[in-house]
Simulated scan of single mutants.
Amino acid sequence: MITGNHEKIAFDVTKEIVIARLSNCQHAVDKEHGEKVADYFETIYNRILEIVNSEEN
């Protein structure tokens, strides 16, 4: 759940990265690939959130 500005920034940036990546790939629409995309999204989101939070300090 997005609760603050940093989370919103991280979500929006991650969404754009994932959309760009998926638009350049051929993936089957199935459970396995959906789980991989979710893992990819989560990994990127967590790293971007870490960077955004560190920029404030």
Results as ranks from 00 to 15, higher is better:
Glu32His: 05
Lys8Ser: 15
Ala20Thr: 00
Val52Gly: 00
His27Val: 12
Ser23Phe: 01
Ile51Asp: 06
Ile51Trp: 07
Ala20Pro: 00
Asp39His: 13
Ile17Arg: 02
Asn57Glu: 13
Val29Phe: 10
Cys25His: 03
Thr3Ser: 07
His6Glu: 06
Asn24His: 08
Asn46Ile: 00
Ile44Lys: 10
Gly34Asp: 11
Asn53Ser: 06
Val18Gly: 04
Asn5Leu: 15
Gln26Cys: 03
Glu7Met: 13
Ile44Ser: 06
Glu35Arg: 14
Ile48Met: 03
Arg47Val: 06
Val18Asn: 02
Phe11Thr: 01
Asp12Ala: 15
Ala38Gln: 13
Ala20Asn: 12
Phe41Lys: 07
Thr43Ser: 13
Met1Asn: 06
Lys31Arg: 15
Ala38His: 10
Tyr45Arg: 03
Lys15Phe: 11
Val18Trp: 11
Phe41Glu: 12
Val29Ile: 10
Gly4Val: 03
Lys31Glu: 14
Glu32Trp: 09
Ile44Asn: 07
Glu50Leu: 03
Ile19Asp: 07
Met1Trp: 07
Arg47His: 03
Glu35Met: 15
Lys36Ala: 15
Phe41Gln: 11
Asn53Asp: 07
Glu55Gly: 09
Ile17Trp: 05
Ile48Gly: 02
Arg47Lys: 05
Glu42Ile: 08
Gly34Cys: 08
Val18Asp: 04
Ile2Met: 10
Asn24Gly: 02
Asp30Val: 04
Glu16Pro: 00
His33Glu: 15
Ile2Ala: 09
His33Gly: 00
Ala28Gly: 03
His33Lys: 08
Cys25Asp: 01
Glu35Val: 10
Tyr40Lys: 04
Lys36Cys: 11
Val13Leu: 15
Glu42Tyr: 14
Ile2Phe: 11
Ile19Met: 02
Lys15Glu: 09
Asp39Pro: 01
Asn57Phe: 10
Ile44His: 07
Thr43Gly: 06
